[in-house]
Computed example of a mutant assay.
Amino acid sequence: MTTLGAVAVTTATFLGMEFVAWFMHRFVLHGPLWFLHRSHHVRHPHRFERNDFFFLFYGSLSMLLIVFGSESHDFRFWMGVGIASYGTLYFFVHDVLIHGRLRFWRKSRNTYLRALNMAHKMHHKTTGRDGSEEFGLLWVSPRYFQLALRRPAPTRVLKSKAVD
């Protein structure tokens, strides 16, 4: 496969994963697999939740595509790379930035990231299976951009050492 073809397949797969994630979240996780996804919508004292098992499905799919396409670096390999890339970004945006599961990134002054965070918080406003909105990860409704632009960005206060 040519370099251009590899980039095209990886990019198309990455972008397609946003639709797959939205569809699965809306119709499967808030549908027949709610019994697993529910753990993500309620407060709990545990570090992990049943919802975390979903990464096994996408991780396994990505791994299988990479393994079976690695000998010839055909489209399967690059599809696996696209899914893995989306999964990596999903982890950092969703688990690290939005939910703070790793505490190294607290607040952002970036309008897009603030709008994304607002949309996700709106999704979690409902703790039940029904009534949620904003099921995607990277695509944000324009109304949240407007809100992010109207609300001031968080200020950063640098702690300075006391001068004697």
Score class of each variant (00 low, 15 high):
M1N: 07
A8Q: 04
V9Y: 10
T13I: 06
F14A: 09
L15Y: 03
M24F: 13
G31Y: 04
P32D: 06
R38D: 05
R38S: 03
S39N: 03
H41A: 03
H41N: 08
R43I: 07
H44V: 08
P45K: 13
H46Y: 15
N51Y: 08
D52Y: 12
D52Q: 11
F53E: 04
Y58M: 08
L61A: 13
L61S: 06
S62T: 01
L65V: 02
L65W: 11
I66R: 10
E71M: 06
E71F: 05
D74S: 09
F77R: 00
F77H: 02
F77P: 00
V81L: 11
I83R: 01
S85Y: 04
G87E: 09
L89D: 01
L89V: 14
V96G: 01
H99K: 06
R101A: 04
R101S: 05
R103I: 01
W105E: 01
K107N: 14
K107T: 05
S108D: 07
R109H: 10
T111F: 04
L113S: 06
M122I: 04
G128I: 02
G128C: 08
S132M: 15
E133S: 12
E133C: 09
F135K: 02
G136T: 15
L138V: 08
L138N: 02
V140P: 00
S141R: 09
S141M: 05
Y144Q: 04
F145W: 15
P154G: 09
T155I: 14
R156L: 14
D164Q: 11
